Simulated assay, not measured.
Amino acid sequence: MHTYSQRIKQEAARLGFDFCGISRAEFLEDEAPRLETWLARQMHGQMSYMAGHFDKRLDPRLLVEGAKSVVTVLLNYYPEKSLPQGPDEYKISKYAYGTDYHFVIKDKLKDLMAYIHEEIGEVGGRVFVDSAPVMDKAWAQRSGAGWVGKHSNILNRDIGSFFFIGELILDLELEPDGPVKDYCGTCTRCLDACPTGAITEPYVVDGSKCISYFTIELKEAIPEEVRGKFDNWVFGCDICQDVCPWNRFARPHRTPEFDPHPALAEFTKQDWEEITEDVFREVFRRSAVKRTKLEGLKRNIEFVQSAVSPERVK
């Protein structure tokens, strides 16, 4: 069991993952009341999928028959050079600079699964990358990947929080790792910096107030009460991560697919405002930005264009 665990971790490192940890596939008892309360308070906004498959979300054995282990991997996406972030520049979240992470991580996890089949034998399991009712952060925490920060992202002492999370849920018994302690201490930088007050209290994010929600998930008009609070973010938002002291340890990723399209790196404010369907299709061909479609991106640009934010994050 221990040998299998070590071999899987070694192969994960060879494939380029920045962390690999293991937890037992069991019912997430401590997450159930938390999730229930969050949903009851309507903090998922219009993300109705968050309320679906409640039982599967909490029990991996309902996703993979006979599941015994959850293998969690992290893949860093912190860029060597950020896109222009000046007070007059439109901004997109760093995770959306390059190729959509679903493709990249899924391919790597499929390779890890193939390795398990070749080296260990007939192991049943599935690959998960943010595409099924799996509580990524809960499993990451249990696997020792890090702790849940006050901004609700997983924080790792070595690399900060700019990474993607993926899982293999397997019917193979493996040696589990343990969680690490919380190192947020008395720091409240993320709470203080959030322009829309989405971090309502430490460790609780009201998804329906988050700039990422407004610019990606919300399909209708953005509410007037948040006009002037977006700090020029037009797809996603990195504010709570950018101000986090642990991200001073963030280091450039080693995944070429996460580099921005060359044209995107040269985008001016005018390019954003005059973007056409052809340019959108070319620059964001395999990018997460495609989720908003061109109309959604234009809506976001017009929304921030019409107001200068009074609360810039220093």
Rank of each mutant, 00 (worst) to 15 (best):
Y4W: 15
A12V: 08
R14I: 07
R14A: 15
D18T: 01
I22M: 08
S23D: 05
F27G: 01
F27C: 06
A32N: 15
A32R: 13
R34W: 12
E36I: 10
E36F: 08
W38A: 01
R41V: 01
M43F: 15
M43D: 11
G45K: 11
Q46N: 13
M50A: 00
G52N: 15
H53L: 13
D55R: 11
K56Y: 05
K56H: 09
D59G: 06
P60M: 00
L63C: 05
L63H: 05
S69V: 06
L75P: 09
Y77M: 09
P87Q: 12
P87K: 14
E89F: 00
E89G: 00
E89R: 06
K91V: 02
G98P: 00
F103W: 00
I105T: 10
D107T: 03
K110T: 03
M113R: 07
H117Y: 15
H117P: 01
I120G: 00
V123D: 02
G125Q: 11
V129E: 01
D136R: 13
A140R: 04
R142V: 04
S143G: 01
N153E: 00
L155S: 05
D158R: 01
G160H: 11
F163V: 03
F164R: 04
I165D: 02
L168D: 01
L170C: 02
E173R: 15
E175I: 14
D177C: 02
C184K: 05
T186F: 08
T188F: 09
R189F: 04
L191P: 09
P195S: 10
P195M: 09
G197Q: 02
A198W: 14
P202V: 04
Y213P: 08
F214P: 13
K219S: 15
E220C: 06
A221W: 12
E225Y: 14
V226G: 06
F230V: 10
C240D: 09
C240M: 11
Q241M: 13
D242I: 02
W246V: 01
R248Y: 01
P252D: 09
P256L: 11
F258N: 02
F258S: 08
D259K: 15
P260K: 10
P260L: 03
A263S: 03
A265P: 02
D271E: 11
E273W: 12
E282Q: 06
E282Y: 03
V283A: 00
A288N: 05
A288R: 15
K290M: 11
K293I: 07
E295Q: 14
E295G: 08
L297V: 08
L297W: 04
L297G: 14
K298L: 12
N300P: 12
V304L: 13
V313T: 15
K314H: 04
